[in-house]
């Protein structure tokens, strides 16, 4: 069982990233549960998506100790890296999270939002870059499957830029290993 927590601020697309990851796992024939929590506001406020991927039925849908944490803000980093599994992978967006420290787990710092802005032309793609980094670091699903899942979800006309964002993430994720 792999438990993945994607966290950030409302509007950063963490829930969509969680849905895409869950759909990719479903495409690979896995059992999957995706949940989320967010404040009442549409932008700002803490936002969190949880994805559990397993080979057998998943009963409890929430994560107590994640294997993987993606933190797009300092608030999210401080909140969700307190209780990790032994060899957890923690991916932070170093655009916003400065000098993160962990007492356990492996830290991977990538300037996710800066990359999205510079290379894809908009911070709107930061969630897809983040998804690429997450797959690059963890190989939770195949690169080809996550590509299919991204294409099935993103708005028409944005496919090329989303794939570019994903590729950027793959490379960044693999390079920091």
């Amino acid at each position: 069982m792999r438990e993945i927590l994607l966290s950030g601020s409302g509007g950063q697309g963490m829930i969509l990233a969680g849905i895409i990851l869950a759909e990719a796992a479903l495409r690979e024939g896995k059992e999957v549960v995706q949940t989320q929590s967010y404040g009442p506001e549409a932008r700002g406020g803490a936002s969190k998506a949880e994805v559990i991927i397993a080979n057998k039925k998943i009963s409890f849908p929430h994560i107590e100790k994640p294997d993987v944490v993606l933190a797009m803000t300092e608030e999210a980093f401080n909140k969700y890296t307190k209780c990790l599994k032994e060899n957890a992978a923690v991916i932070v967006d170093s655009t916003y999270v400065k000098n993160p420290t962990l007492t356990r787990g492996d830290l991977h710092e990538v300037p996710i939002t800066a990359l999205a802005e510079k290379e894809v032309g908009s911070p709107l793609f930061s969630n897809i870059v983040a998804l690429g980094v997450l797959i690059g670091v963890t190989n939770i699903v195949k690169e080809s499957t996550i590509k299919e899942a991204v294409l099935a979800r993103v708005p028409k006309g944005t496919e090329e830029r989303n794939l570019k964002a994903l590729e950027l993430g793959f490379i960044a994720g693999k390079n920091i290993l």
Binding site: L26, V32, V33, Q34, T35, Q36, P61
Partner: peptide
């Protein structure tokens, strides 16, 4: 809310 909002197969 849990069953209503969670995504599953």
């Amino acid at each position: 809310e849990v069953v209503g909002h969670m995504r599953e197969k």
